[in-house]
Each structure stands twice: as structure tokens, then as C-alpha cells.
Amino acid sequence: MNQNEFMQLVNPFKDKLFRVAKRLLVSTEEAEDATQEVLVKLWNRNESLDEYKSVEAVAMTMTKNYCLDQLKSKRAGNMKIVHNNFTDREASLQQKVEDSDTWSWVERIMNDLPEQQKLIVQMRDIEEMEFEEMSKVLEMNEQAIRTALSRARKSIREKMIKTHHYGIG
């Protein structure tokens, strides 16, 4: 496979990989690095790519694993997490007032979800993936995914209704 063929193969889902990476890593630069890393790894496996049934699912799994590793190593080397949570909440309250009518605070609500729920909401509600595909990438059964998804959607709703009431009151 030459570079052009590879790009054609990768083009339909490279944005998807990037968005998933960004959901987990939050920062655009880090998400770009992660996507590049995954695509280069995929390119180096060039010869064996034909063996996979779905290159997209493989790429998605690689992205997920890469980002989770990235977060793990960041956490191991950074002890300020508790403090960060604290300041984050204060900032978001202030911003909630500023942009209560835009969708950007939905993003902030999603940032507070646990990683697994973030991934599941991203894959289902934004990328519109079927449960069957998701269970391959996440290595979870469909029922467990549904449970986590329901929990995530409800907690987004809860936080949203709260801010909605703040907006009125």
C-alpha cells in the first residue's frame, strides 16, 4: 500500500479518531499528537492491514488505548489532580453564567464524566456508532455499555437541569 492509498483508507475516520482523542485528553494539541501517533503506527503495520476486518475499529481501539495510557502516565507524574478539580469547578461556575445559552458548557459537563462514560457518550451520541462496533473497541458487552451510557446521559441531564434552573433563578 502506498501513501495515497493509505490516506484514502484513513480519511473517512481520521476526524473521528481525533475527536475521540480530544474527548479524553481535552487539549487540542495533545489530541493531534495522539492521532498522529496512532496513524503512523497504523502506517507501519501497512503489510498486515489487509488482515483486519475493520481498520477503523482497530484504529479506534489503538486511539482509546493510547489516550488512556497517556492519561495514566500523566496522573502518575502529577499530584495536583485534587487541587485542579477544585479550581476547575469555580471557573466553570463563572463561565456558566457567561455562556449559559451556548452548547459549550455541555462540553464542560462531559469533561467531568469518568473516562469510560466519556468514551461511550462520544462514540454513541456524537459519532453515532452501533453498540456492536462499540463493544469491539471497548472490549465490553453491550449490556454493560448500555448501563454506562444510561448513567452518563442521566448525569449530563441532571447537571444541565441544574444550570438551567440557575439561569432562570
Binding site: Q3, V10, K14, D15, V40, W43, V106, I156, M160
Partner: peptide
Amino acid sequence: PMFVYAVQAKQEQFTATIPLKT
């Protein structure tokens, strides 16, 4: 907002180049 965001979030694109020279 939940559903507006879900649609908007899908618009974001990966614009960086892919270094394939290795």
C-alpha cells in the same frame, strides 16, 4: 443543548498533517 452539542461536536476536524515518511 445536549442534542445541539452532539451535532456541533461532530463538525470538528483533524487538520494536522500525518508524518508518513518513516
